[in-house]
Design a protein around this nucleic acid. Structure first.
Ligand code: SF4
Ligand code: SF4
Lengths: 156, 156
DNA sequence: ATAATCGCAGATCAAAATGGTCTGTGATTA
DNA sequence: TAATCACAGACCATTTTGATCTGCGATTAT
């Protein structure tokens, strides 16, 4: 339920790896695959999409590979998810025109659900790769009050 | 990606339906199924789980059915998701002991991801069924500042 | 120029999660 | 005691995801 896919996991690991290198360093798939024990073929797919979306720069050539195209603070987690799995959508009906939900005519929960969806997207958009890989303690004061930043759920 | 399951959708619709009735009103599966065009068998499963988790009260008897067991402001969206699909878990590894992820030894993204997970759970826990069905404009001032409450994503 | 080393693209298969169906049982009450 | 409701679990179909395979295209060192 609400689980991130393995591909996104792979993408984040790879990006994390790259952002730990000296800036502009070119790394090939095999190295990343080796570092995390990820099957090379599927990692290839993942990195391809990241480069197609402008997050990575690819260099095809001997000694080629991938390097970060943007500063890690200009890449949000949402960007990564969008690149790998297509648009985040909590609801089946947010694909809009696509295939319409049977309940849509009588549905009175759509608008509140969209509100939640907006908040989740905002959350994912706020967090950049930089904060992500460097374990910055807060998101910069955008969330206030009683919000739980411990990473540990406080519910039973 | 990150999509709520249809069963949760059904659960929320049913709960929304029930909370629109006079309090304590007993409604059977067929009526709800009819109202939203949900297959009765699967709706039955969904309502069973809600009653097992103490969200609904069941009355088996002629003229029986289900009624809300708690006030709608004491039921969070997280409760509903937990009841239907088991615990919310963004990461594959948060099932902990279960089957371990191949990358877990070298993983340097787990803690930030758990942070995000915590925030999402907090979000879902904050919103009660009452706010949900009555379209209350805000969540009561817990989120401040530039948060986007419009329900519409503001990203491209 | 050409061969080695890379990424690119798409088809394809396997496994898992989900949605939906079916059959039979148990509780309550008119 | 029969009708009406929920309960339980097995079961199958569909969709999504993870992973693999095959061949092509770009770049560069020699
Ligand atoms: S039930 Fe409502 S919210 Fe859920 S998918 Fe259908 S229209 Fe969208
Ligand atoms: S890669 Fe890290 S975060 Fe993702 S599932 Fe494995 S251990 Fe958890």
């Amino acid at each position: 339920m609400l689980k991130l896919t393995k591909k996104v996991d792979y993408a984040l690991l790879a990006l994390s790896f790259l952002s730990q290198q000296e800036t502009g360093k070119v790394v090939n798939i095999w190295e990343i695959s080796e570092a995390y024990q990820i099957p090379t073929e599927i990692l290839a797919k993942v990195l391809q999409r990241l480069s197609k979306k402008g997050i990575l720069q690819s260099h095809h050539a001997p000694k080629g590979g991938y390097s970060l195209k943007k500063s890690s603070k200009d890449v949000s987690i949402l960007d990564v998810i969008n690149a790998i799995d297509g648009p985040v959508a909590i609801l089946s009906c947010s694909d809009s025109h696509d295939k319409t939900c049977q309940q849509i005519d009588n549905c009175d929960i759509r608008s509140p659900l969209e509100k939640i969806q907006g908040k989740i997207m905002w959350l994912l958009e706020e967090m950049s790769l930089e904060e992500f890989t460097h374990s910055v303690p807060t998101t910069g004061g955008v969330l206030h009050g009683s919000i739980n930043l411990s990473g540990q759920p406080r519910y039973h």
